[in-house]
Amino acid sequence: MRTACCTWAPSTWRTPTPAGCSSVPRGALCRWSTTARGRSRHPLPSRTDVHAAIDSLTSETGRRPSVLALATRLGLANTTFRRNYPDICDELAAIARTPSGTTAADAYSTVQANNARLRRDNRDLAEQLELAIVAERKVLGCNQQSLMLAH
C-alpha cells in the first residue's frame, strides 16, 4: 500500500481509498489502488461508458471510431481494450467493413458507371494520341525536307 501519496482525484476515478492511505479520508476517491503484486490498477469502464465514447467519437469525426481511438479516449491501452471488450471490437470491425446504405445493386451500378467513364476517357486519349502522332510526322517531314534542300 502507498501512504501519504494520494491526491484528491477527479470523479472519473472510481477507485476507493486503500486501507493505510493517510492523505485522504477513508472511502474517498484515491488515485492509487494496489493489487496483490503491488501494481496500480484502475477499474475498467462500463459497457455504457464504452458505448457513450463510441457515440461521442462518431459525432465528433462523422464516422465510426477505430478500436485504437476508442481505447485512447477511454484511457486504456489498445491490447487491454481488445482483451476486455472483444465483442465491441468485433462490432466496430464489422461496421468498418460494410459501407452504410450500400447494396449489391448500388455497387454494380457504380462499377458500370466507372467503366463507362474510363472507356470514354480512353477513347478521348487515343484520339489525342493520334493527333499528336500526325503533328509530329508533319514536323519531322518538314525537317527532313529542309535537310535535303540544304545538301
Rank of each mutant, 00 (worst) to 15 (best):
residue 49 D to E: 15
residue 6 C to G: 15
residue 63 R to K: 09
residue 105 A to I: 11
residue 67 V to G: 05
residue 136 E to C: 04
residue 100 S to K: 14
residue 97 R to F: 00
residue 6 C to H: 02
residue 110 T to N: 07
residue 87 D to T: 04
residue 117 R to L: 14
residue 84 N to K: 02
residue 82 R to Q: 14
residue 115 N to A: 15
residue 118 L to Y: 10
residue 29 L to N: 08
residue 20 G to M: 03
residue 140 L to S: 09
residue 137 R to S: 10
residue 27 G to K: 01
residue 27 G to A: 01
residue 91 E to P: 04
residue 122 N to P: 00
residue 16 P to D: 07
residue 88 I to P: 00
residue 144 Q to I: 09
residue 106 D to G: 09
residue 122 N to A: 14
residue 25 P to I: 05
residue 105 A to D: 12
residue 121 D to L: 15
residue 71 A to P: 01
residue 117 R to M: 09
residue 124 D to C: 06
residue 14 R to N: 11
residue 33 S to A: 14
residue 120 R to A: 14
residue 46 S to L: 07
residue 49 D to R: 15
residue 56 S to F: 10
residue 37 R to I: 04
residue 16 P to T: 10
residue 38 G to D: 02
residue 71 A to K: 04
residue 112 Q to M: 13
residue 103 T to L: 04
residue 14 R to W: 07
residue 108 Y to C: 04
residue 53 A to V: 09
residue 74 L to D: 05
residue 26 R to S: 12
residue 76 L to Q: 01
residue 64 R to E: 04
residue 32 W to I: 01
residue 7 T to I: 11
residue 65 P to N: 07
residue 67 V to C: 07
residue 84 N to W: 01
residue 74 L to G: 05
residue 33 S to V: 02
residue 76 L to T: 01
residue 135 A to Q: 12
residue 118 L to H: 09
residue 139 V to L: 12
residue 113 A to G: 02
residue 3 T to M: 05
residue 13 W to L: 12
residue 95 I to Q: 02
residue 83 R to T: 09
residue 98 T to D: 07
residue 129 L to W: 10
residue 78 N to T: 09
residue 151 H to Q: 12
residue 17 T to A: 04
residue 98 T to H: 06
residue 93 A to N: 05
residue 118 L to F: 11
residue 8 W to P: 07
residue 12 T to A: 10
residue 113 A to M: 10
residue 30 C to W: 06
residue 47 R to S: 02
residue 15 T to G: 05
residue 146 S to H: 13
residue 112 Q to P: 00
residue 18 P to S: 04
residue 1 M to F: 10
residue 109 S to T: 13
residue 93 A to W: 04
residue 91 E to Y: 13
residue 52 A to D: 06
residue 9 A to K: 03
residue 27 G to T: 03
residue 29 L to C: 08
residue 57 L to R: 03
residue 80 T to H: 05
residue 149 L to D: 13
residue 132 A to I: 07
residue 134 V to R: 14
residue 85 Y to F: 15
residue 140 L to E: 09
residue 17 T to E: 03
residue 123 R to W: 08
residue 105 A to M: 12
residue 103 T to C: 03
residue 10 P to W: 05
residue 82 R to V: 07
residue 147 L to Q: 15
residue 53 A to P: 01
residue 34 T to I: 06
residue 7 T to P: 00
residue 85 Y to H: 07
residue 36 A to E: 13
residue 49 D to A: 15
residue 50 V to G: 00
residue 61 T to N: 10
residue 57 L to C: 08
residue 67 V to P: 03
residue 148 M to D: 15
residue 118 L to N: 09
residue 91 E to M: 08
residue 83 R to H: 09
residue 14 R to P: 00
residue 38 G to E: 01
residue 19 A to T: 14
residue 45 P to D: 02
residue 71 A to R: 02
residue 125 L to H: 13
residue 39 R to G: 10
residue 12 T to P: 00
residue 148 M to W: 11
residue 63 R to C: 06
residue 20 G to F: 04
residue 1 M to N: 11
residue 54 I to N: 03
residue 81 F to L: 02
residue 32 W to Y: 13
residue 94 A to W: 04
residue 56 S to D: 12
residue 5 C to H: 08
residue 5 C to F: 06
